[in-house]
Write a protein that binds this DNA or RNA. Structure first.
Lengths: 184, 184
DNA sequence: GCACAAGTAGAACAATCGCTCTACATCGTC
DNA sequence: GACGATGTAGAGCGATTGTTCTACTTGTGC
């Protein structure tokens, strides 16, 4: 079952969600059509199984054994995401890709939101930026989405943004004209 | 022709790139199948025509008549992108969606890169952040990608990041540990 | 040694796909 | 008012799709 999920995930990651046929997915999963349909009774389910597998692997890769210090954790976070991009996908976020390929599927949307909110929660906790969760998430999204174009420079850029965000966080109100940290 | 392109664009924007059949696209374009195939001899071409149309409309909406001052331009930029997201898509970048749906299509990839690099060029020019083009682009990507989840708060978050980026830009080296502004 | 669950390989199904083609209507121009 | 260009409506084509089903093989527990 885990092998099936892994195969499905890598197939969708490599070729997108629209292109691969069920027979392609069968090859990727390394089982027969019958067994594949036993665990994933429809193509939609294959997509969801792949995404759930990806979710677990992503959280493991990015958040396990992060440095304790907030500053070090922030740097390590971007480093790990950059490494993930390099190793795993080379194009943007797989969850966004899945929803983009099928915008009417509400189950996919729910999966995307659950994934993002868990990432946001963990990232904010590890870096001490709970008051700037949205901005932190945006840097992460920016890194993920711009990585295919900028490669390693995207990681550096995200570190810069993270440092600027932290520096603006500490002293007091971020930007008095629009809001105060305690309100967001 | 412009009406066809507009129809195609809105069809792909609303329903993604995988789902709509050519007959759906014909309905969206408001012409017969024959005329549609005259201007777009294959479904792939329909996708490209839609993206080119979107490219022009996006640049018009976001960059025309921006305020002259760098700071005002930066704020206006995020405001306009937020407004664009609200009006046009409600989910992420259409170019990324197109490439994600069909990762092997190199023509699509080229279109994506041309779009992004022109956005980066114009944004950096208008805001005076040419030395931080990558970071600026990442904030834009972060705003675009996180807008569906955070709505108006995404715009505010991007403004915060933009302000932090500008503040870090002016005084001198950004982060001596990793790089200096003059090198990136 | 045999029954049974669980696997494989792949034929078969209706539906749908992208695309082509035919037949007919509507123009502006001489 | 005839003409050619350009449009519409939609039937038809072969290929491919997601899904189901049949027939056969394998491993495990009693």
């Amino acid at each position: 079952m885990a092998r099936i999920a892994a195969g499905l995930e890598s197939a969708f990651a490599r070729r997108g969600f629209a292109v691969p046929s069920v027979e392609d997915l069968r090859d990727a999963a390394g089982v027969s059509l019958r067994t594949l349909y036993k665990y994933a009774p429809s193509r939609d389910r294959m997509v969801r199984i792949a995404l759930e597998h990806r979710h677990r692997r992503y959280l493991d890769h990015v958040f396990s054994d992060l440095p304790m210090g907030h500053e070090a954790a922030l740097d390590a976070l971007f480093e790990r995401i950059g490494l993930w991009m390099e190793r795993e996908t080379s194009h943007g976020c797989l969850f966004h890709a899945a929803v983009a390929a099928n915008p009417d599927d509400n189950e996919l949307k729910a999966l995307l939101e659950r994934h993002k909110s868990e990432v946001a929660e963990r990232a904010a906790g590890a870096t001490g930026l709970s008051g700037r969760k949205i901005e932190l998430m945006q840097v992460i999204e920016g890194l993920t989405q711009s990585w295919p174009l900028y490669r390693e420079r995207a990681t550096t850029g995200a570190r810069h943004l993270g440092a600027a965000l932290r520096r603006a966080e500490v002293p007091g109100p971020f930007d008095a004209r629009t809001s105060s940290p305690s309100l967001t």
